[in-house]
C-alpha cells in the first residue's frame, strides 16, 4: 500500500510544481485553478492511502515472497447478479432526457432512481439478493 500512496503523492507534487510555474508565468487563471485542484485530487487519496498503509501494515500482495496460502480464505461477498445497476442507469437516462424533451420525464427518471437507491441499499445490507 505504501507504493500506491507514493505514486499519487509524487503525481500531486509534480502537479503542484507545474501549477506554481504555470500560474506565475502565464497570468491566466483557468489552467492554474484546474492544475491546483488536480494536485488536490492526488493528495487526497494519496494521503489517505499513506495513513491506511501505516494502519493495515504489510499485505500478502505487497510481499514478493508470499505464497498463495497466505491469501487463502474469505475475500468479500460479491453480488452474483443485481437488477439495480440497470434500474439506476435507466433512471439517469430519463433524467438526462428530461433536460431535452421536457421535465415530465423526471417522473419515470426520479422514480427509477429512488427505487434503485432503496433497493440497492437493502440489497447491500443483506449482502446481496439471496
Amino acid at each position: 500500500m505504501r507504493i500506491e500512496s507514493k505514486i499519487l503523492l509524487w503525481l500531486g507534487i509534480f502537479f503542484g510544481l507545474m501549477c506554481a510555474v504555470y500560474w506565475t508565468w502565464s497570468l491566466e487563471n483557468a489552467g492554474g485553478v484546474m492544475m491546483f485542484f488536480a494536485m488536490g485530487l492526488c493528495f487526497l487519496p494519496g494521503l489517505y492511502y499513506f495513513w491506511w498503509s501505516r494502519r493495515m501494515g504489510y499485505r500478502p500482495e505487497d510481499d514478493p515472497n508470499a505464497t498463495q496460502e497466505t491469501g487463502a480464505g474469505y475475500i468479500d461477498a460479491f453480488p452474483g447478479s443485481s437488477i439495480f445497476p440497470f434500474t439506476l442507469g435507466s433512471g439517469a437516462f430519463f433524467v438526462v432526457l428530461s433536460m431535452v424533451f421536457g421535465s415530465w420525464l423526471l417522473i419515470p427518471g426520479l422514480g427509477l432512481v429512488i427505487w434503485a437507491a432503496l433497493g440497492g441499499i437493502a440489497e447491500g445490507r443483506r449482502g446481496g439478493d439471496k
Binding site: 498463495q68 496460502e69 491469501g71 487463502a72 480464505g73 474469505y74 475475500i75 468479500d76 461477498a77 460479491f78 453480488p79 452474483g80 447478479s81 449482502g127 446481496g128 439478493d129 439471496k130
Partner: peptide, 14 residues
C-alpha cells in the same frame, strides 16, 4: 444470488 469469493490457495480449496 450472492456468491462469496475465496482466494483459491490450492486446487482442492477452490
Amino acid at each position: 444470488m450472492t456468491t462469496t469469493a475465496h482466494n483459491p490457495a490450492v486446487e482442492s480449496h477452490g
